[in-house]
């Protein structure tokens, strides 16, 4: 196991370096002098001078790269032009909304996707299966922002059941009722992604349900529910977990637009504002944080597989 962890960790570090290099290249591709790009049009010559010093922007490109990497490892992601605050502190202020949105959407994905997939697999090619397949296909083809707008119109605009937009911190106010603002966004985000999970849950369940040990379990006279939950589902869980972790990455992307639709103060709407205001340090910071998070989550998922399945560990 230890050599497996070390190998994976090595891969993760290489990926993080590539991610950092990609953002470095991207930010150097912005037309104009990097210092004035990073400081905005209203910067004083002194500020430009200071930034040139601390990021080494007037030095050769390799020195700049070195400074860039060192700064990032020290947690210096630059200052926002618009907010005039360090990028990392803005990101951490906005993380709460995105994390709650992510968790609630994940709940929708898992409950709708996994249960839908299992139900479809019980009687393959029945009308229930075909209906679920069609819903799943349609779900995967609907843009989450459109679904969000439609849900918003129905449940907030017409029926007045749920709030349409905005979100106030739960951690600061201690008011858990605030989470109801995230119900519609998480359904919009989760439902669309549940489709993928449902399809893969169906096919891995079908695969397992044809195995001999499932026949044996039935032959022993176990109740069907017990066979499905204890014998089949537990063995189908690994491929389903894979697809859920893959879905999580897709959701981060879709959340950018969903947060915008529901006016949620999260990281996704931060990056959109950053783009519209040409706040390059914010764009760079968010991309780095999100991509590094993705690499780390992948690493942890790999470790889980290695733990669950010895064939992967020694393969």
């Amino acid at each position: 196991m230890l050599s497996y962890i070390i190998r994976r960790a090595g891969g993760m570090i290489v990926s993080i370096f590539i991610v950092i290099s990609v953002t470095f290249i991207l930010m150097h591709s912005v037309p104009g002098n990097p210092a004035s790009v990073l400081l905005g049009p209203n910067a004083t010559p002194e500020q430009v001078q200071n930034l040139n010093e601390s990021w080494g922007l007037n030095r050769p490109i390799l020195t700049q790269y070195y400074k860039y990497v060192v700064n990032i490892f020290q947690g210096k992601f630059g200052r926002s032009i618009y907010y005039q605050k360090p990028v990392l502190s803005i990101i951490s202020q906005r993380a709460e909304t995105s994390i709650f949105l992510g968790l609630m959407s994940l709940l929708v994905v898992v409950s709708v996707g996994v249960s839908g997939g299992i139900i479809a697999s019980i009687k393959p090619n029945s009308w229930v299966d075909n209906l679920l397949l069609l819903v799943a296909l349609a779900g995967a083809s609907v843009p989450s922002f459109w679904l969000g707008l439609m849900l918003m119109n129905l449940f907030a605009g017409q029926l007045h059941l749920l709030p349409s937009s905005g979100f106030t911190s739960v951690l600061k106010t201690g008011n858990i009722v605030n989470l109801k603002n995230l119900i519609l966004p998480s359904i919009a985000l989760g439902f669309v992604n549940a489709a993928l999970v449902a399809r893969s849950a169906r096919s891995s369940m079908l695969d397992v349900l044809n195995r001999e040990y499932v026949n044996t379990a039935r032959a022993k006279g176990l109740k069907e529910l017990r066979v499905i939950v204890k014998h089949a589902f537990r063995n189908a869980a690994i491929p389903i977990t894979t697809i859920i972790s893959f879905t999580f990455a897709k959701m981060v992307s879709a959340a950018v637009v969903t947060e915008n639709v529901f006016a949620l103060p999260g990281i996704g709407s931060l990056v959109v504002q950053g783009i519209l205001k040409r706040d390059y340090p914010v764009i760079q910071g968010v991309m780095l944080v999100v991509a590094i998070l993705y690499v780390v989550i992948n690493f942890l998922t790999d470790l889980t597989y290695g733990y669950l399945d010895p064939r992967i560990r020694y393969g």
Binding site: S15, V19, V22, L26, S29, V30, P31, A249, V252, S253, A254, V256, V257, V271, V272, I275, R278, Y280, I283, V286, M287, V290, A291, I292, Y294, V295, N298
Partner: peptide, 14 residues
């Protein structure tokens, strides 16, 4: 590792 839409947004700006 970069979410598709974020990468596209950043590229549009550049």
């Amino acid at each position: 590792a970069f979410p598709a839409i974020m990468m596209a947004l950043a590229l549009m700006t550049i």
